[in-house]
Structure formats: C-alpha cells, structure tokens
Design a protein around this nucleic acid. Structure first.
Lengths: 230, 230
DNA sequence: GTCTATAACGAGATAGAC
DNA sequence: GTCTATCTCGTTATAGAC
C-alpha cells in the first residue's frame, strides 16, 4: 500500500507542478489579472473541475505562484550569499544585490507578481509573509555579522523616526542599531525601486547602462548600511 | 456657425471626459488588464461602436489614461514647486517629493498604471514620453537653480559610470555636473521605490510610519543631489 | 461632416444540463 | 467528464439622424 500511496503522491506532486508551470506561462502572456483556472485546465488537457482537487480556488493558485516566486528569489539571494561566504560583508552584500537583479531580469513576470501592482480583487494571505522576507533576511544577516561586536559609523536618525526604527529593529532585526535597521529598509526599497524602474520601462530612453548604475547604487547602499568600501 | 461648432466641440469634450472617468472607475475596480470598451460604453448608456468616434482603439484609451495620469502627477509636482518658489532649493525639493507621494496615495490606481507592472499586450507609444518626464523635470529644475554658478560637493562617480552620466546629462539635464545627473536618476528611482513599496503592500507588517520614513528619505536624497540641510 | 445605432465577425469565457 | 447554449470581448461595415 505504501508504494501505491507513494506513487499517488508523486503523481499529485507532478500534476501540481504542471499546473503551476502552465499558470506561470499564462501569467507571462496575459498577466495575473486574467489568470483563469479554466484556461490552465484546457492547456493541460484536463477539465476545469479537476483542477479544484489541486487548488481550491483561483486565489489559492495565485498564492502558490506568489509563494513560489518569493521562495525562488529568496533562494537566489541565499545562494549568492553562500557562494560569497568567505568574502568580506560588503562583497556579500553586493552579491545579494546582483543576484536579486539577475533573478528579476530572468523572471520578469514573477517579479511583477510580487513587487508590481497588486492583483485586483486578490489579497495576500499570511502564508506569503514568511517567504516574502527571505531576501531581506539575507541582507540583514550579512549586516549583522559585519556589526558583530563592532561599533558603527552611521549618521544619527532624526528623533521623529527613532521610535519607528526601534520598533522595526525589535520586529525583524534584533540586535542591530536602529539606524542600521532604518537604512536597511530604505536600501531594500531602493534596490527594488531600481529593478522596477528597469523592468517596468521607466528607464527607457533615460538610462542605458542599467547594470552599471545598479551596481553603483548597490555599492552606495552598502555604504548606507555601514559596509564601507575599504 | 461658430456657436454650433462650439457646442459640438463642447459636447465632444464632455463625452471624452465621461468616457475617461468611467474608464478610470473601471481601472480601480478591475485593473488595467480588464479594461473593456464595451463595459465603459454600457455604463455610459452608449453603444460600444460609438466609442470609436472618441478613441480609435482600446489601447488608445489606455494611452489617454496614462497620459492623463502622468500629467496629473506632473502638475501636482509643479504646483508644489511653484508654491514653494520663495523657499530655498532644498525645501522646494522636499515639497515636490511630498507632493509626489500625496498624489500617489490619492490616486493609487493611476499610480499603478504608470509606475506599476506594465499592462500585458500594451506597449506605450511615444506620446507618453513627454508627460512622463514632468515630475523628473521639476526635480531637475530645482537642482539646476541651486547649482547656478556655484560649485558642488558630490563624491566623484566611478570611471565606469562617467560616460553614461555624461550622456544622460546631455540628454535631459544639460548644464548639470554628471555626478548630479546620476544622483538625480537614482533619487527618482528611490522616491518611486518608496511609494511603490508603500502602495503595493511591501511595507505591510514592516513599516508603520510610512510618512515619516518617506520624509526622512526625501531629505537624504536632497543631500544626495547636493542640496544639504544647512 | 459628426455622431449614434444596428448588426455582424471571430475569438474566447462561462454556466448548466447531461 | 462532455456538450451546448449563452455570455463577453474588440473591432468593423453600414445605415441613418442631426
């Protein structure tokens, strides 16, 4: 019986993957707003009702795609960091940044799904919160090791922002100085801002050397979180 | 005859505006991907073919909405700058930044239309290029007056980025030092990055005091383009 | 000339009976 | 799981009102 169940489970995993693959292809062609279970089923030669055995609703399929995308970019960031583990923190920071951009360029539609405009009528469940923070956590980890024991050389926060920075630190960057936490959040928004501008066309007719500008910015941000060049 | 033509033209303008208003309402409800000429016509009590007297295609209606959105945010930025005309450049810079964010919060769907994920199957025509640059031009103008005749105190660009910065300067910021042009582009991406993260939900469960963080960043960016605090 | 309405096309989605 | 009848869509051709 266990082999039968094993086979069944394997089949289920394969079909689930096939559904998500097809849905991703549709995402690229039509956008998330038009993702329809029926079209996915048709493309797979299934009947739409059969899909509901794998995903109880269109929104749950969307959630699965979003979680996969977050996991994919998170894994890319973690891989880049691991490959640079022997390097100084600044190099690891830069490696993560470049990995983030590379992933986005390689998966533009999945990037749009998670960092672009929200899908109308869809509201993300809590399942996405964990995977969504993997890239950020990788950046935090690098900065944390750099600060271990050492002091920091960041300009002080304005008083008005300090409580918020303290709260954020307690929430997801415990042990770091609040100035660094705030700088991290800002850096993270800037990274995505650069990539979004590049991917969403805002750099068309404006910036040609996007890779060069991005690398430049990544270095500035490293500086901003306390990882100076030398 | 001129009154007749006047009346006709007035009617035409009114109908055109009504179509765009209804389309904007649909944009908010369903997203740009699902914008449909027929639904707009139905809602207005017209027949779909009648819309073609006003917009030759669905894509041209989308283009009109995009141009309107760019003009709306551009006008908001210019208004903010004009209202702060007597203030020092840094205050004018901050006013533009705040106006940008305020506009985005007040018009989230139009913001998503122009700064969010591209609409699948739609490619923006050249008509959008001019309006798209109004906010940026306003920022450039403020920095330009600040630099008139005076020197600058920005860190030098890496050699690898200098040619690109020189090219960008010639293209849309003539007369500014290339370091400033590069910093302007980066600042612009960061502004939109902050607003996008706020509007698109990336700050959920992360940043509470979004206004405070944004103002803080706007100040840092002013510094970055050479408009220091005192 | 300017507009609206009717009708139609080909393509695709959808709901429900079977 | 299948089939069909009935929607929607963008777009065009055409005819007639103003």
């Amino acid at each position: 019986m266990s082999t039968v169940r094993g086979a069944r489970e394997r089949a289920r995993i394969e079909v689930t993957a096939a559904i998500k693959d097809e849905a991703r292809r549709m995402l690229a062609a039509e956008g998330a707003a038009k993702l329809s279970l029926r079209a996915v089923a048709r493309e797979l030669g299934m009947v739409s009702s059969a899909l509901y055995r794998y995903f109880p609703s269109r929104d749950e399929l969307l959630t699965a795609l979003i979680v996969d995308a977050y996991d994919s970019v998170g894994a890319a960031a973690e891989r880049a960091e691991a490959a640079a583990r022997a390097d100084p923190p600044r190099a690891r920071w830069l490696a993560i940044c470049e990995a983030f951009r590379s992933w986005a360029l390689a998966h533009p539609h999945e990037y749009a799904l998670i960092y672009g405009s929200p899908v109308p009528g869809y509201s993300a469940p809590l399942d996405t919160v964990g995977p969504a923070s993997r890239v950020g956590n990788t950046l935090i980890a690098v900065v944390r090791t750099a600060y271990e024991g050492r002091g920091l050389a960041l300009p002080p926060l304005p008083d008005s922002l300090r409580p918020e920075a303290v709260r954020m630190t307690a929430d997801f960057a415990e042990g770091l100085p609040p100035e660094v936490t705030a700088a991290l959040v800002v850096a993270w928004a800037q990274l995505a801002g650069m990539v979004s501008f590049e991917l969403f066309g805002q750099f068309n007719r404006v910036v040609e050397d996007r890779a060069g500008l991005f690398t430049h910015v990544a270095g500035q941000l490293a500086q901003g979180v306390g990882l100076p060049a030398v």
